[in-house]
Simulated assay, not measured.
Amino acid sequence: MDQEKIIELTDREAIRDCLYRYCRGIDRADEAALRSSYWPDAQDNHGAYCGSADGFIRFALAVFETGPRNIHQITNILIKFISRAEATVESYFTALQRGPDNDGEIRQTLLCGRYCDLFQKREGQWRIAERTVVYDWCEEQTPPAVAEAERFGPRRPIGAPYPHDPVYALGKRGVHVAV
């Protein structure tokens, strides 16, 4: 395999990794993960929010103060390189979001759509420079009426915001994998 192909494959993996960091950040209220997925001067059109990525991150973190439960999954990642330092990326998402509305009533919404991103490689890192969220499906659902402890039953642990989610304890174990 030639060097150019190896670089392309490495770049594709770095872009996917960035998308996955975004999902962890948005689901776990992990500000560092969210910030690491955008360039500081990035723009985000998220439907309910349109402006700087920094503003979107502050908007999202304020939502987390209400104690929501979110899960985002990304599939069908299509990457097209414009140059060695720019790529357009379309990735399909499914998001289940549950939390209180402005009146304190718990709402649950299933969203499906696509992140249409312009990624840029700067100083060897790929991050989002521009994001437009395209919504293809929105379904309001009836949230479960029982408390989480009852709903999850013996299924423990359950997901939690940063730094309390069990995934963050993994990095503290000192386990290293040879590469």
Rank of each mutant, 00 (worst) to 15 (best):
F64P: 00
Q43I: 05
V63H: 09
Q73F: 13
Q125I: 11
S83F: 05
F119G: 00
A53V: 15
R98G: 00
P40D: 04
T132Q: 14
R114V: 01
C50K: 09
E148W: 01
R58V: 04
E140I: 15
V89E: 00
E123V: 03
F64G: 03
L111Y: 09
R114K: 07
W137L: 15
I106T: 15
F93N: 00
Q120G: 07
L111F: 13
T132Y: 12
A48V: 08
C50T: 14
P154V: 14
W39T: 00
F56I: 12
T142E: 15
P40G: 00
P100G: 06
N76L: 13
C116Q: 05
H72T: 06
G104F: 10
Y115T: 05
F64R: 12
A147D: 13
I71D: 11
H72I: 09
A60D: 09
R69V: 06
V146M: 15
C138W: 05
C116L: 08
K121P: 01
L78C: 06
D54S: 05
R114S: 02
R155W: 08
N70P: 01
I57C: 07
L78G: 04
I71A: 08
A62S: 14
F59D: 08
L61I: 04
Q73R: 14
F56H: 04
D44W: 03
A42D: 00
E90P: 02
G67N: 02
T132F: 12
S37N: 03
Q120A: 12
S91L: 03
N70L: 11
G124C: 03
C138S: 03
L111G: 00
I82C: 07
E123M: 05
D136S: 02
R69Q: 06
E105F: 14
F81R: 03
R107N: 09
L111N: 07
K121H: 06
L110D: 11
R122E: 05
Q73L: 12
Y115F: 07
P144Y: 04
N102D: 11
T142P: 07
Y135R: 13
I106P: 07
W39Y: 04
P40M: 06
